[in-house]
Design a protein around this nucleic acid. Structure first.
Lengths: 109, 109
DNA sequence: GGCCACTATTCAGTGTCACTATCTACCGGT
DNA sequence: ACCGGTAGATAGTGACACTGAATAGTGGCC
């Protein structure tokens, strides 16, 4: 990724992953593949795993180890109540930022 | 600011300031006041000054020292051609990110 | 004449985050 | 036995916004 995008993702990537988990439980490798599909072609796998560990330690997700037919067991993450609350806050903050930016883009005031 | 917003601002605040300078030349204290008016109530002054020094060193802005009627001289920053190009790139990246986020928010796919 | 408020900038130290690079581990096919 | 795909962990790095304090000029008030 360009450095600009890397910096922009700080704080946002966390929200993106939580938003994905709000739709359905998922595991790291799956999330990485999904992101690549959606155009985030260069997000390193290591980044996602580190992020998942972080949100687990903060108590936003519940974790379950599930055996895989292929390869080692998966760690499936499920968003819990605390995580949902944090995601709500994320969307509020994102909206605030996005609105200001949009105003700025169109000549502003 | 909440920590969430602090992280989201990384990379974005730079774009915000460049966007302001795209509208008109400005100096640090002025930009800080403007941001506070626009709802970024808790952005520290020190943050803006550090950012201005950074974009100056990268060559995105031209600087002129202008005496002030009140207080010490101002450092007035003007966006130059390089800065404008960088700002264009910022808007492209921002659009990309904002679109993905918007898709995610509405149930996604 | 000393103090305070406002204007204006600088700087050292801190925490957080995404990235890089590398490592472990399990499976199937050849 | 080897390799490619699946799945996860981790130490070290760089960039950025924040904290908190310092510096410095001007004007008004008592």
């Amino acid at each position: 990724m360009g450095k600009q995008v890397t910096e922009m993702l700080k704080g946002t990537l966390e929200g993106i992953v939580l938003a994905i988990l709000a739709g359905r439980p998922a595991y790291g490798y799956e999330i990485t593949s999904w992101l690549r599909d959606k155009g985030f072609t260069e997000i390193a796998e290591g980044t996602i795993y580190a992020l998942l560990i972080r949100i687990e330690q903060r108590g936003y997700v519940d974790v379950e180890k599930v055996p895989s037919e292929k390869g080692p067991p998966r760690k499936v993450y499920t968003l819990n109540a605390q995580g949902r609350a944090y995601l709500d806050e994320f969307w509020r903050n994102w909206s605030f930022l996005a609105e200001r930016l949009e105003q700025l883009r169109k000549g502003d005031g």
